[in-house]
Write a protein that binds this DNA or RNA. Structure first.
Length: 677
RNA sequence: GGCGGCGUAGCUCAGGUGGUUAGAGCGUGGGAUUCAUAACCCCAAGGUCGGAGGUUCAAGUCCUCCCGCCGCUACCA
């Protein structure tokens, strides 16, 4: 290990959703990495936590009729409770409501202000409370819903402080160029560079209409933008900006694990803030992929979410962790299904590592009365290959884990396991055991197998902390495998061992049919356990990047209370302003050079047919829409799109993940121009 | 539309700077074995390496075009 210290962070989780596998994923990875470095003697620190400010939290608490602090406390507890059984051992759980954090964020603000990176202006535009982001939408034509959430946007016209993000375009590009490791994987770096090269606008970093947050220093009617608040956690947690900044000096800069959906905040905004304040940038922002099911993001609306509650009831924590590390290429999207989980468990863990331990220990117990034979220095050309393969596995494992290629690292370890299995089969110790004359050979074979297993268990310990300890104990070895550096374990060195007697499978074989049936039963009759619920609405349930509020769904239904007011209530007068009319499509054609646009000529019962444009070209061919009866918003302000004027908007349902449009129509004949009310 | 990436055995994927019979794991089929969680070990698929051209003595591996996916971004809804 070259590094002197290691500091890893997960996104901090936005407390308006229940914990789910999407939160657990980067957290398990961070935990594994921390164990990996720590096992190798690197001074390591693992930070996770919760993001608790913002308008959404404010509203959710209000909807529940609960005090804000009580509300967030309860949800934080839920997160901690959900993570505990997964074997996650973080060093610190930061909360953005921690007083120390709030003070340090204010300090960061003051520094940026003093250095001239902040100015006061006025913001007018549309805001998505789910993203906590301002959206650029065209109000004349838009539905005014957030493109990622399909939730209504909110109109904001208020005084706001701005961060001079635009001034950091060149410094950022320069940094990306000089530090290719700063944004990973490469694909993501390309995206970030392309985004920044496209020009940066100054960033609104305060809100006056939000109270639940950190006040702007010197201007308390403003509240600091939640992302500014949240991102700062990575340094405030270490005591930056306070008298207690030893950890900051010791551990910064960090490896930030983030979901690819919140990459921009981490790879553009965050380093710009830090540059502005003259603080060293993170070492790496690594964007991991999303967990998929059936090729699609997990989500309740699709009914395909993998549920933490179900996972915990049926599968061991080590298996969940191993699966995510081994099956999913970190940095790429990955499929996660219960079936695949069971298959991995059976083939890799039960038949692989588990069975190797089992057969080795059983023979030691049966042939050597439980006392593992040790290697002798005599000729053992046959075993030399085994030891060199194990060393190779160790070397590759470390190389890949440092590069965050967990899947490949584990592959290397398993190649080592296969080599030992083959060695045992080739040498047939069960036959040697029947011939007293070949006792020495038997000893050599089992000593080699046992020694190889010792090294392999050490190697995989960060990925299988609980079960590696279990196997280690069954091997009757002294100490804790998670505190022994595999690279310092010497082949054949003297070790402390006691008599082996209790042997039991560390990874019992899983009955796929049975487990799948059980899971299906549960899905049919959902068990009410807090941690498993996804949100009630929106398309973005389960899988969004853990935390930092990138599209976290709103709080799930609270018992005995109606759901939070995700939609604005309007009066009948508001509705009356909208003039909906029946119409018939007379002509339709694709608009050149536009992916989604169809140009329609519609009969609204008016003297002249109208031209309207509709963004449905990806789902409706012009010919299949001609002649259809549709519903049009007739009094929408005219709008030019692609140089063509649109005089109205057709109505369509937005269905599914990608908002596929389905045209609204009538089942009975309706004259053109008939008003809907 | 712009930028980036992908498309290799049933499935998931490896295949720096072009060069022997294109690989691995899983699944499947056959064999061998019995120490072990019916596990392990051995053998097998004969895959137009998305399609079409081109460069080259030689191309999954370079170039051009096309098709199909995906991401970011713009436009749009």
């Amino acid at each position: 290990m070259g590094e002197k210290t290691f500091y890893v962070t997960t996104p901090i989780f936005y407390v308006n959703a229940k914990p789910h596998i999407g939160h657990a994923y980067p957290t398990l990875v961070a935990d594994t990495l921390t164990r990996f470095y720590r096992q190798r003697g690197v001074d390591s620190y693992f930070l996770t936590g919760t993001d608790e400010h913002g308008i959404n939290i404010e509203r959710a608490a209000a909807a529940r009729g609960v005090a804000l602090t009580k509300h967030v406390d309860e949800i934080v507890d839920e997160f901690k409770t959900a993570f505990a059984p997964l074997g996650i051992e973080y060093d610190q759980w930061i909360r953005t409501t921690d007083p120390g954090h709030e003070a340090a964020v204010a300090k960061l603000w003051r520094i940026l202000d003093e250095r001239g990176h902040i100015y006061k202006s006025r913001y007018e535009g549309w805001y998505c409370p789910n993203c906590n982001e301002f959206k650029e939408v065209d109000e004349k034509t838009s539905d005014l819903v957030c493109p990622t959430h399909e939730r209504p946007l909110e109109r904001l016209a208020e005084e706001s402080y701005f961060f001079r993000l635009s001034a950091f375009q060149e410094p950022l590009l320069d940094h990306y160029a000089k530090h290719p490791e700063f944004v990973q994987p490469d694909v993501r770096r390309n995206e970030v560079i392309s985004f920044v090269a496209g020009g940066l606008k100054d960033l609104s970093i305060s809100r006056v209409s939000v109270k639940w947050g950190i006040p702007v220093p010197g201007d308390p009617k403003h509240t600091i933008y939640v992302w500014f608040d949240a991102l700062s956690n990575y340094i405030t947690a270490l005591g930056w900006g306070t008298d207690e900044h030893q950890k900051f000096a010791r551990y910064w800069p960090a490896l930030h694990l983030v979901g690819k959906d919140i990459l921009r905040m981490h790879a553009v905004y965050w380093p710009a803030f830090l540059m502005g304040a003259g603080i060293e940038l993170p070492r790496t922002v690594y964007a991991h992929g999303m967990l998929l099911r059936g090729g699609q993001k997990m989500g309740k609306s699709l009914g395909n979410a993998i549920d933490l509650g179900v996972l915990k009831r049926h599968f061991a924590p080590d298996l969940i962790r191993y699966f995510l590390l081994r099956e999913v290429a970190f940095g790429q999207d990955g499929e996660m299904t219960y079936e695949a989980l069971i298959d991995r468990s059976n083939s890799d863990l039960a038949d692989g590592l588990g069975n190797l331990a089992s057969r080795t220990l059983t023979m030691v117990r049966n042939y050597f009365d439980g006392h593992p034979p040790r290697l002798r220095n005599e000729e053992q050309s046959e075993t030399e290959d085994v030891s060199s393969r194990i060393e190779e596995a160790k070397r590759r494992f470390d190389e890949e884990f440092v590069a965050l290629n967990f899947s490949r690292g584990l592959e290397a370890a398993w190649a080592g396991i296969a080599r030992v299995d083959k060695f045992i089969t080739d040498n047939q110790p069960w036959k040697l055991a029947k011939d007293p004359a070949r006792r020495a050979q038997l000893e050599s074979v089992l000593a080699t197998a046992y020694e190889a297993l010792r090294h392999l268990v050490l190697l995989v310990a960060p990925a299988l902390p609980a079960t590696s300890r279990e196997i280690w104990n069954q091997m009757e070895l002294a100490g804790d495998p998670l505190t022994i550096d595999p690279n310092k374990a010497v082949w054949g060195e003297p070790i402390e061992v006691s008599k082996i007697d209790r042997i039991s499978p560390a990874f019992p074989k899983l009955d796929k049919g049975k487990i799948m049936a059980e899971i299906e039963n549960e899905n049919a009759a959902p068990v009410s356990e807090g941690v498993e619920a996804e949100d009630g609405g929106g398309k973005q349930a389960g899988n969004e990047s853990a935390g930092l509020q990138a599209g976290m769904p709103a709080l799930p239904e609270v018992p005995a209370l109606p759901g939070p007011p995700a939609t604005q209530i309007i009066t009948i007068d508001d509705f009356a302003k909208v003039e909906l009319r029946a119409a018939t499509v007379l002509e339709a054609e694709k608009v050149p050079k536009a992916d989604k646009l169809l140009r329609l000529i519609v009969d609204l019962g008016e003297p002249q047919p109208r031209q309207i444009l509709a963004g449905i070209a990806q789902h409706y061919a012009p010919e299949e829409i001609i002649g259809r009866k549709i519903i049009v918003v007739a009094n929408l302000a005219p709008r030019k799109l692609r140089g063509l004027e649109s005089n109205g908007m057709l109505l369509a349902a937005s269905v599914g993940e990608d908002g596929k449009p389905v045209l609204a129509t009538f089942t009975e004949d309706v004259p053109n121009g008939a008003r809907l009310k």
